[in-house]
Design a protein around this nucleic acid. Structure first.
Lengths: 191, 191
DNA sequence: CTCCAAAATTGACCGTGGTCATTTAAATGC
DNA sequence: GCATTTAAATGACCACGGTCAATTTTGGAG
């Protein structure tokens, strides 16, 4: 039968995560190198890949954890009653998602996870995001001809769209919220 | 003063593109290797990077060319009058975009280009896509409380969303069009 | 035709993510 | 305690995208 996970395993994993966090804090996600992580963690490179299937899995772990924090914030606060409010309460999350192109790409890759059996920290976060927004919409003064969860997935689509514009438009004068809000207005409160 | 481009340059570039096309035809985009391309083209690796800034630029060239073909098809045909039609006329394009995860990612990366100064074959295609859809919407029986070009960018957002679901949902029973159509209905013809 | 400067090409080399046979450490049975 | 077996760790190695100083080719200028 399978033996219990050793304490050593958990310690090594924690060291790798802490090392990665420290690199990210100093240099950002884009500059993260597996070599640097194992150096700081004091392990061999092979050990890294015994704990994470690939580099992306480590990043997903860290990004997913932060994602969950922003989502908890959003879920705990009062449900937004207007489109402007809905954008406002998402600003911390948007700020994080757009802090680096690399971080945004991580989200983008899982953006279809809301309606899937995909697993992993980011996919879970996406599912939670849709649930949170669904609750907002269901309880708010928004259109009722479309199911709240469908509307919520649409909100996600527009969020990603607005952030994509930010990264594609080099000299963009528009901020993410300036792009996001009109879409939400048209999506949630059609005349 | 700058000399004219040599014929040799154009020939080499054409050989590289042809070599890449043949690899893709045989093994798909994901399996494309620069080594294999230069081998088939009969050039050195360095030559490849003298012609394309990186591997992605080559892929963008090829993907962009096919993208343009589908867009021309869409632009030439009659404008769709219903949501179902609008989905139907986009099916060839959707088929190509979802033929490989790798291809989809290429589009995704430029999906914000519609409102940007980004250049390159894919970005141009995205801009054209939005223009084509804008014309459809402006001339069709769709909502008028939102500007056609804003609606068109929303259509793009939903298209990407629907395709993302396809790639994230492993056992998805829903096809892209089944996901796409309800969004378009709610977006273009709110009750 | 000869020579020269710009353009094109070359391939050895590098950085980085990822693999795997081997070695070391820990848990289990006696 | 000792032997055995399973988990964990190791680091040399590979694949592949990308770089660059050196070399070859090309198209004029004289």
């Amino acid at each position: 039968m399978a033996r219990a996970v050793q304490r050593r395993t958990l310690e090594t994993r924690a060291r790798l995560l802490a090392a990665a966090e420290s690199v990210i804090a100093e240099q950002g996600f884009a500059a993260l190198r597996v070599e640097e992580v194992v150096l700081r963690a004091g392990t061999a490179k092979g050990t890294f890949f015994a704990h994470f299937p690939d580099k992306d899995a480590l990043v997903a772990q860290i990004v997913g954890a932060r994602f969950a924090l922003y989502l908890a914030e959003m879920a705990e606060g009062p449900a937004p009653e207007t489109v402007a409010d809905m954008v406002r309460v998402q600003m911390p999350l948007i700020g994080f998602m757009t802090s680096e192109r690399y971080v945004f790409d991580v989200f983008f890759r899982y953006s279809g996870a809301a309606a899937s059996d995909e697993i992993g920290p980011i996919a879970e976060g996406i599912v939670t995001y849709v649930e949170v927004v669904t609750d907002w919409i269901a309880g708010g003064p928004f259109r009722t001809d479309v199911a709240p969860d469908v509307l919520a997935e649409g909100v996600l689509a527009f969020l990603l769209q607005a952030m994509a514009v930010r990264f594609c438009a080099l000299h963009a004068s528009q901020t993410v919220e300036e792009t996001f809000a009109p879409y939400l207005q048209a999506w949630l409160l059609p005349r």
